[in-house]
Every structure is written in C-alpha cells, then in structure tokens.
C-alpha cells in the first residue's frame, strides 16, 4: 500500500487547507502519479485536479510531487517515491482554487504580455515564407513549451513578483519569437523587456531548468535575451 498525502482545500467547506492521507494499492506496478490520482478519485470523487492528454504534451497536470514540480502523467512512482510515501501539493506560488487546482491567471497574463505571436507586417508571399533549416534550428528547445507552469512556479523571483517578472515560461516564449527569422518586431519586443523586473529579476538559479518536464532551458533563453538587449543598447 502506497501512502499518499494530498493537499485538500475546498473554499465552500474548508476554512483552511489540510493534508489528507490515502492508501493506494498499486499492485506493485510502477504507475504514473496521474494513475495514482485516478485511483484516489475512485475512492473520493471530490478530489479535484486537472488532466487531459495523459502523455505529457498538454501541460494540464503540473503539480508539486514530493517537493518537486512536475507533470503527474509522465512522472513514474519509481522516480519520486522514497520510503513508500507520495506527497502531492498544488504548484507553489499561485492561488489555490481547490485541492490541486491553481488559478493560473497571472501566469497566462505574463505569457500574453510578451506578445506571443509572430509579428511581420510585410506582405507574405503566395507560398510560405522561406526559412533555412539552420534558422529553423534556432527555434528548437523554445517552441516545445507546453505552458504547464512547472518552471515559473519553481522560481522564487516569480513567487515574489509574479505581476512584474515575466517568469521563465513567458521569457522562453519571448525568446522563441526574438529568435525567429520571420519575426520583424525584435526592437519593440526588446523595448518592453528592458526594465529592472521583466527579465532582470532572473538571478540564474536554474530551478526552471531543473523541473522542466520537456527538458527545456529557460535560463539559457533569458541569457540570450540579455545579450540581445545589450547588443541593441550599445
């Protein structure tokens, strides 16, 4: 029997959050954490969590698993469980709506702030815009972000200033468009990032890199943005 301890909070009935203990029979299988949650939901249907693709591409089920942020659907128990104990909490630093469900509003707002869409006012050709494989390679490691928020909610700078610091996820996407040979708005994009908070709150501690379930490297992207800012200003 796996011991599972889960953060519970329903604002309608609970005056404060608490940890609830569950026993789950895994029948010795190396389940994913999401499978464990499904088994628990069969015991207690009021357990709330988000999930969708169950294969690590939609980014719904980011949560704090034994102290580390990750996606429940692609985290096998063997990776995280020591001494038969699994502790699940919502992603840190965001308001809790209920149980493991957090309000991601401010995370999305920071994503929207970097204008996450290609900008190019020139008239497009009748076919696609051409891009060499080398130019396209620059987008690898950037466009794959699934907006699960594991990185930004592992970042102390984002905890302290979620309204002003764009956070690793948003900055990774900011650089995804700065690095795109088809985008023509680099100057305007950089002007929006030059203040002391949006980019420069990153202190390079690389929590984001450590938790990213897709193996992406926001710290490197932030470094590249700093280089571009410097190039642009000197």
């Amino acid at each position: 029997m796996l011991q599972v301890s889960i953060y519970r909070y329903n604002p309608e009935t609970d005056s404060a959050p608490y940890m609830q203990e569950f026993q789950v029979d895994t029948q010795g299988r190396d389940l994913m954490v999401l499978n464990v949650l499904e088994l628990i939901k069969q015991q207690d249907s009021s357990m709330a969590y988000r999930r969708s693709c169950r294969e690590g591409v939609c980014g719904s089920d980011g949560m704090n698993i034994n102290g580390t942020n990750g996606l429940a659907c692609v985290t096998p128990l063997s990776d995280v469980v020591k001494s038969n104990k699994l502790v699940l909490r919502p992603l840190p630093g965001l308001p809790v709506v209920r149980d493991l469900v957090v309000d991601m509003g401010i995370f999305y707002k920071q994503y929207e702030r970097i204008q996450p869409y290609l900008q190019n006012d020139t008239t497009p050709p009748a076919i696609e815009r051409l891009q060499s494989p080398e130019e396209r390679d620059k987008l690898d490691g950037l466009y794959e972000c699934i907006l699960c928020a594991c990185c930004s909610t592992a970042c102390p700078s984002f905890w302290w200033n979620p309204d002003k610091f764009v956070g690793p996820a948003g900055l990774l996407q900011a650089y995804r468009f700065l690095a795109d040979s088809r985008d023509t708005a680099a100057r305007e994009r950089l002007a929006e990032l030059e203040d002391p908070f949006s980019v420069f709150r990153c202190r390079g501690i690389m929590n984001c890199v450590a938790v990213c379930p897709k193996g992406l490297n926001p710290t490197r992207a932030i470094g590249k943005i700093r280089e571009l800012l410097l190039e642009n200003a000197t």
Binding site: L118, I127, R129, P133, R136
Partner: peptide, 18 residues
Amino acid sequence: VFELEHMGLPFSRFDNGR
C-alpha cells in the same frame, strides 16, 4: 497551410527553405 505558416507555425524545413 500557408496561412498557418504566415501566422508563425514553426514547420521543419528542407534545405531550400520550404
């Protein structure tokens, strides 16, 4: 499909850029 590309979809490319 070309509209999607113009919107920014990061398609993989051949050597000729297509």
